[in-house]
């Protein structure tokens, strides 16, 4: 079996937002929509204060609550764990957005451009009317994964088959791959480091592992 996951090494992330930019460029998401976000989180009180950069987005859960509530079956899950949205089925009720504990889903009701009413040439060229009035989210760049694997590439190893955010990460904080493959980089990272998953108590089984220290759990 294959189970694609993402690993974010919080020790390495510097909050540069290159992954965010790369995601927006690759997926042409409109203003206000960030499938890949890097949060700038503060914790503690003076003098013991920490600042942590936390890449986040759709966690591609084992048991996605968004899929459970979706009335139209637009939200689905592939055998490799990737949670998908069928844009032709979605009715834009936003119920999934409210069921997601990770705030990973976005609905755009109207066409918006970065610089107000006038669209840039790129925005005109890449405008996707299909995505207006429905809910969208991170796809783990599923098109790249499928095209890459079809060409014999390995997701997480070959850039052609790897999500854009991971390819762009300047510090190697973001990694992607198959956790069911014991030889994959993500399997080794998870095995050799201490990690947590966000809102683990929800029981959703997120496919996003946050490394915070060396050594196995």
């Amino acid at each position: 079996m294959t189970r694609y996951i993402m690993v974010a090494d919080l020790r390495r992330c510097v909050g540069c937002q290159t992954c965010t930019s790369s995601c927006k460029e690759t997926n042409a998401t409109p203003p206000g929509v960030q499938w890949r976000r890097v949060l700038d989180i503060e914790a503690g009180e003076y003098p013991l204060v920490r600042r942590v950069f936390v890449p986040t987005g759709c966690q591609h859960c084992d048991d996605p609550p968004c899929m459970e509530v979706c009335p139209s079956t637009a939200t689905g899950q592939r055998k490799d764990g990737i949670v998908t949205i069928d844009y032709d089925l979605c009715i834009g009720c936003s119920y999934c957005a409210l069921a997601c504990p990770y705030e990973a889903r976005y609905k755009v009701d109207d066409v918006e451009y970065v610089y107000g009413a006038a669209a840039t040439a790129t925005e005109v060229a890449r405008r996707d009317q299909q995505k207006i009035g429905i809910v969208t989210k991170c796809t783990f760049c599923v098109d790249r994964i499928d095209a890459g694997t079809k060409a014999g590439k390995v997701p997480g190893v070959d850039p052609e088959a790897t999500p854009a955010c991971v390819n762009s990460c300047i510090s190697g904080a973001l990694r992607f791959g198959d956790i069911d493959n014991p030889d994959s980089a993500v399997s080794k990272l998870v095995a050799e480091n201490k990690w947590f998953r966000m809102h683990e108590d929800e029981g959703t089984g997120p496919g996003f592992y946050y490394l915070w220290d060396k050594g196995a759990l």
Binding site: T73, G92, G133
Partner: peptide
């Protein structure tokens, strides 16, 4: 609700998922 959904002319899709969706 019909006025709120993004694709009102697909409203019949709401009936597609009685297995788990309370909205359906």
């Amino acid at each position: 609700v019909w006025l709120e959904i993004g694709k009102p002319w697909r409203a019949l899709h709401v009936f597609f998922h009685p297995q788990t969706s309370w909205m359906t």
